[in-house]
Design a binder for these strands. Structure first.
Lengths: 251, 251
DNA sequence: ACCTGAACACCGTTCAAGT
DNA sequence: ACCTGAACACCGTTCAAGT
């Protein structure tokens, strides 16, 4: 390993430290409570060093948003590998999105603020392009499932709808549902978590029924699919969430 | 009219001036560009007076969000009075939401930021309650249309869905679609090639088909309904938008 | 070359002084 | 009573000095 590569690794590690510190502060004090001083307070670096990694605060927020998209892509990938019909795989995408937003609530909110023009315009072109590439990867996973549905015959596209439009409809619906119910999530109770799950499943199934993606809601045991997803594909994530909730209850 | 009432009117008028000034600044410089100094720069009032109306900047943002919900309620009310089937009325709600978000883009973004905990927590209890009441009014209009659909037989609720859940599904879907497409309109992404109106109509129809709300997408001329909405119910709003667009093109 | 943190500019909020 | 705007505290960002 050349010194150059060692440096790059060290720099990447420090960038990760900075981002993790920022997330810790936001988890406690919200996005508005984040300051550069607080970020470096618990780190052996100075304010100036943060500005060697990120051109400004907004650039840091976009960086965190991208980091978040990366872990989401990983979970979507696993969802798409679920053993089942193409509609079950798309259903799994919705569940993955929900679990991810519960596991990383601060970061989910960040995606919303990172999309506002005031944040986006100040971010580096490099990080903005990175963000678009990550969005493409996420859409790509969904497009693959749609393609599976078309070739298996479970899905027949209505003439006015393209695969990209189908993917986007599911994304917009999931995003809207999670975003609107998120405000009740900071209480982090079992009840509000169940509410989000129930509504997201409802919305997902309504949209998939509307697309006439088989099997229809009434013709399949979706609770069984949900059970398998929770016990197999997303076992670790569900365990982590259960853990956090019981810790909260004990407080 | 007692002096007391004159005062109240004058105070309300000044509050409106402050809010309008804030909106003008945000339209030019974004939410992040808003400062109290800029708000009063073009008004015959001082910073301190703003703080007699709003306890803090966040309280002002919530106030603007509520003002926005008021005009949305008015447009939803007109949508619900559209001469047509219950499904057409619900379709009209989606169109009203879209037109409203295009007419008041700054304020639409505000709804998103006003829902974030950092803004909400700093706002007055009074304004927060006002916001909840406005949301109830908006949901109430949608519930009335759902009730019409049930009594006319065009809609039969699936056993696991309540009217409130149906209303929420349509709201979440519209919100997600508009939010995701809102800021990417000027960008070259997979998402930006899709026009907001077309996608919202698609999503609306997919969801209504999923709910099995008659007449189905294939059994009705929705472009004809859209035309009537634009030429009758929302004539003024469409004219205003066309006007703005041609002004932009001439620049 | 890279890091540091004092210094600067800016903005939300307050409050003593004015009417 | 209500309004004013100077003053204060805080925070993003810079850059001269240090290593």
């Amino acid at each position: 390993m050349s010194p150059r590569i060692v440096d790059e690794v060290a720099i990447a590690a420090r960038e990760e430290e900075i981002m993790q510190s920022a997330l810790n502060i936001m988890a406690e004090q919200g996005v508005a409570g984040l300051t550069i001083d607080k970020i470096v307070a618990k780190l052996p670096y100075s304010k100036g060093t943060v500005y060697n990694h990120f051109t400004c605060k907004e650039d840091l927020l976009t960086g965190l948003c991208n980091r978040h998209c990366g872990t989401l892509t990983e979970m979507f990938q696993r969802a798409s590998e679920f053993e089942g019909s193409s509609r079950e795989k798309m259903f799994a995408i919705g569940i993955a999105y929900k679990l991810h937003s519960l596991l990383y609530p601060t970061e989910f909110m960040l995606v919303i603020s990172a999309k506002t023009p005031s944040v986006r315009e100040k971010s580096t072109a490099k990080r903005q392009e990175e963000h678009l590439a990550l969005e493409q990867a996420i859409l790509g996973i969904m497009l693959k499932i749609i393609s599976d549905g078309l070739s298996s015959g479970d899905l027949a596209l209505q003439p006015h709808l393209s695969p990209a439009q189908v993917a986007f409809s599911l994304w917009a619906m999931s995003f809207g549902t999670i975003a609107l119910l998120h405000e009740s999530l900071d209480r982090c109770t079992v009840r509000s978590e169940m509410e989000l799950e129930r509504e997201l499943i409802n919305h997902c199934n309504l949209l998939l029924d509307g697309l006439q993606w088989k099997p229809f809601t009434a013709d399949h045991d979706w609770l069984e699919t949900l059970k398998r997803l929770k016990e197999e594909t997303f076992k670790d994530e569900v365990a982590e969430l259960t853990n956090r909730l019981s810790r909260k209850t004990n407080d």
